[in-house]
Design a binder for these strands. Structure first.
Lengths: 337, 337
DNA sequence: TTGAAAGCGGTACCAT
DNA sequence: ATGGTACCGCTTTCAA
């Protein structure tokens, strides 16, 4: 292992100069800096992580807690984990994984041993056990998702309510008077908060706009094709010609195939909006208007928020709701008078 | 933050005694030890991770590299990540996540900075880029999966070939003379090694036993219901009454529903074996004989292997293939003469 | 059975 | 612009 001392000797300078040259925290003569960089490269020098953690103020590690509940949608979850890791690396941070029981109890362990600088919380439940732990620890914690009681917490998430309202507005503007919300599995409305928030936005705005609304689930714990199919068929039988889909790709596929079977054209006979969507709707074949839920955006914001709180330790807690955007693709019919 | 000095002062002993009492690396008088433990508990002492990494020989962190390719089956992958984390924690280790480009380049970074003690490799490709990195670094690396060239590498995995042979044997023993292998998506035979190995075992043993074999895929990149359905229908048309399924749960469901439509009873009219399966087949409704691929077993073994190599740095590389086991559930018919 | 002290490899202050 | 050095908090000899 190469140490800073060997680099210093090779470059003919003191170790403090090496440290400053490499960290850039103090100006170093151009020529000296080059000598040091060359020596470091030649010797294959990499600063020792433990020594840096001990001497410095930062560990350059974030904890990422994920309970990995059975009803977690794996592909979506993976997208968030990946996005977090990528965002962290951009700021020279690594991700330490805390799963299952470790997700809560591990939070205390890794923060009090100063293994991590801050904690990012994924897969947030309404009454999440990690909320009280977050309040009890001194290092910053950022929730990617919104628990019921956000008192004293810092949270980051898409504004699902606004997304729900936005979807209703678009359909109402297009002249639709009866809308069906193809929602999440039943269990999601108990274990998650985002499902409720989107539904709340849809329900509220539907009332305001005076449109009829039918809300349905896509299954008990996961997508059930028969459930989705009959929900769609009932909607069509009622005369609904507008769908807001807040669900995984499978549900979209079932909806589109039922519509195709009936010879109903999306964007003309029927309007469809996919709300808070993480997957690539291009794979569906039919272009669909979408209000995306972008893991990269949420996770980048979460990482930057954590860093900001690390920088200024007094920063007050904040709940940051990301405004939804609408990506039109022609799946909502033009206004019918 | 409480340090070892404060604990020492509170207990009226030296810091070395505290260290030894807490680590158990040197006998400490029963009564002294109690005093120290009480003091540590009262003060809420947690050893500083950075200091431990620097002074000690161990970081107590494993790197887990996962490329997260687009064709990775998310639920299966998550099961492996979880199993690894759980196994690691049992030995007081944490998991540092390396994803995407970081999966390879990060390996060098975290090992040369001594952030981690060893590296665990998930989602191994036949010509995995991480193979050459593993050879170039000095800390132990354990592959959970088998690349094409295992020269100098330590790998752990289910013996897929043996699993394939085992499945054929069972069906041949039951008197079947024509078997269909419902395999992985096409892409898996290019990007993974386990798919090939299972197929090889099946093909070889089918030849040896003199049974006819038809191998099929379940789709291009993922499960395609139509593809599976027609594969099953063709098999039945040919007269095949024996299926080996090496695929995700969806494929099993399609198979079982086609059989049900035809009024064919599993275990009587038709035999089915699920090979190298990670999901819970109980959810399928019909009891199915299964040769499980247990993430917990593979990952536990991987962690223990890493620790062993850490303990005895000279340990020669080893490829450990886990012998498959057969769990009968009555889905293979009794011998028909 | 216990203690003293020399590191581990950096960071950052205080000098020069 | 650079160097000397006092830590950071713990592990582990070496002594007693």
């Amino acid at each position: 292992m190469t140490t800073i001392h060997e680099v210093a000797r090779a470059a003919g300078v003191s170790i403090s100069t090496v440290s400053y040259a490499l960290s850039g925290k103090r100006p170093v003569a151009e020529q000296t800096r080059r000598r040091i960089e060359d020596a470091a490269a030649a010797l294959g020098y990499t600063p020792d992580a433990g020594a840096r953690m001990l001497a410095g103020r930062r560990t350059h590690i974030f904890a990422l807690t994920e309970p990995l509940r059975a009803d977690t949608h794996a592909p979506t979850h993976m997208a968030f984990v990946l996005a977090t890791a990528v965002a962290a690396r951009r700021h020279d941070y690594d991700i330490l994984l805390l799963t299952e029981e470790q997700a809560s109890q591990g939070m205390s362990r890794v923060t009090s041993s100063r293994l991590v600088d801050a904690t990012l919380v994924l897969d947030v439940a309404p009454d999440d056990a990690r909320v009280e732990i977050a309040r009890s620890i001194s290092t910053p914690t950022v929730f990617i998702g919104i628990p019921d009681d956000t008192e004293g917490l810092t949270c980051v998430d898409l504004d699902f309510e606004a997304a729900g309202r936005m979807a209703v507005d678009r359909l109402a503007d297009a002249g639709h008077t009866a809308i069906t919300l193809l929602g999440q599995p039943v269990v999601a409305y108990r274990t998650s908060n985002f499902a409720r928030r989107l539904r709340r936005g849809v329900v509220d705005r539907a009332r305001t706009r005076g449109v009829q609304l039918q809300t349905t689930s896509s299954g008990r714990v996961a997508t059930e094709e028969a459930t989705v199919r009959s929900a769609v068929e009932n909607a069509l039988a009622r005369g609904d010609r507008a769908f807001i889909v807040h669900a995984v790709d499978d549900v979209h596929e079932v909806l589109l195939s039922v519509l195709a079977e009936r010879g109903l054209r999306v964007g003309q006979d029927v309007s469809v909006i996919s709300a808070a969507t993480t997957f690539d709707t291009a794979a569906l074949g039919v272009p669909i208007d979408v209000i995306p839920l972008d893991p990269a955006q949420s996770c980048t914001l979460a990482v930057e928020t954590a860093l900001r709180h690390l920088e200024h330790r007094g920063t007050p807690p904040e709940v940051h709701l990301i405004p939804p955007v609408y990506r039109a693709a022609g799946s909502v019919r033009a206004h019918a008078d």
